[in-house]
């Protein structure tokens, strides 16, 4: 609840691109974890695009994707790249600069 003034102070929406590959277990975890983080801390103040690189291969090249799953935060502030299934919530929040 403390993050609502933060959102107010920072009207820019969080934009994420999550790269997954098909229906792999880790990809599933990543989607789940990201959703729960967003639902808990961002409350609709975000845009999430999920790209499945097995179907959209060119994106993997364009975004320099090596590892799956990869989450790219394009804004606000510094773009960040996160590898892994986002299971370490604290770390994710810290890196994404989201105050819990």
């Amino acid at each position: 609840m403390e993050n609502s003034p933060k959102i107010a102070a920072n009207p820019e929406k969080y934009t994420f691109i999550l790269f997954v590959s098909g229906m792999s277990v880790k990809s599933g975890h990543a989607i789940e974890n990201l959703r729960s983080i967003c639902d808990t801390y961002l409350k609709g103040n975000f845009n999430l695009q999920i790209i499945d690189i097995t179907t959209d291969r060119q994106s993997a090249v364009d975004y320099q994707i090596i590892a799956i799953p990869t989450l790219i935060k394009t804004g606000p502030g510094q773009p960040r790249t996160l590898l892994g299934d986002l299971s370490d919530t604290e770390k994710v929040l810290r890196i994404l600069d989201i105050k819990s």
């Binding site: 590959s21 792999s24 291969r57 590892a67 990869t70 790249t81 590898l83 370490d88 890196i95």
Partner: peptide, 28 residues
């Protein structure tokens, strides 16, 4: 020619992952 950029300073690891992205790019 595919240039794979791996910049440590821009990357954070937050859990399990694999290099499927690399495989897919290579395959592509």
């Amino acid at each position: 020619v595919d240039y794979v950029r791996v910049e440590r300073s821009e990357i954070e690891e937050t859990g399990e992952y694999d290099l499927e992205g690399l495989f897919i790019r290579l395959n592509h």
